[in-house]
Computed example of a mutant assay.
Amino acid sequence: MGTFLTILLILAMVATVGALVRGIVIFLRTTEADLNGTGPSISGRKQNKAMQMRILFQAVAVILVVLLMVAAGGKG
């Protein structure tokens, strides 16, 4: 069980870093034209989506860490 949770944790961490990098790349590609306008731009929406995914992956990683700690505490 611990090995499975560890693999899931690693996958969640990789997904978190991937979403973070994607959000940063989208942010860096934002042009002045994207900033001048009314309402949220397409770039802004993409940035928000990438950061929401990052937060989701981080939450999953934290939950997996807690489960691993509970599983390790039960063996002691």
Rank of each mutant, 00 (worst) to 15 (best):
Q52V: 00
A33Y: 08
P40H: 15
M1T: 09
L28I: 05
G44Q: 10
L68F: 09
S43R: 06
P40C: 06
T38L: 08
G2H: 10
V60M: 14
T3W: 04
A72L: 12
A15G: 09
Q47E: 03
L64H: 12
V65P: 01
F57D: 02
P40A: 15
A19H: 04
L67H: 10
M69T: 05
G44C: 01
M13L: 11
A72N: 12
A12Y: 12
L20P: 01
G74V: 03
K49Q: 15
K49M: 11
I55A: 13
K46G: 04
G23Y: 06
G37C: 07
F27C: 02
V25Q: 04
R22I: 00
F4A: 13
I24A: 10
L67T: 02
T6P: 00
V25I: 04
M13H: 09
V62C: 11
A72P: 00
N36P: 03
I55G: 05
R54A: 15
A61P: 02
G18S: 10
G39S: 01
I24M: 09
R54T: 01
A15W: 11
V62W: 15
R29H: 13
N48R: 15
A71W: 10
I55F: 09
G37E: 07
G74L: 14
T16H: 10
N36I: 02
L5G: 08
G76D: 10
P40M: 15
A61H: 12
I42P: 03
V25C: 01
A12P: 00
L67E: 05
K46M: 13
M51I: 00
A12V: 03
L20M: 10
G39Y: 02
L28G: 04
L67D: 06
L9E: 03
I10F: 13
I24F: 12
I42M: 10
G37M: 07
T38P: 04
G73S: 12
Q47T: 00
L56I: 04
F57L: 07
M51K: 12
V70G: 06
V65K: 09
P40E: 14
V17A: 11
M1W: 08
V65W: 15
I7A: 13
A50I: 00
V66K: 05
R29C: 06
R45G: 12
I7G: 05
N48P: 01
M51C: 03
M69Y: 14
A33M: 03
L35S: 03
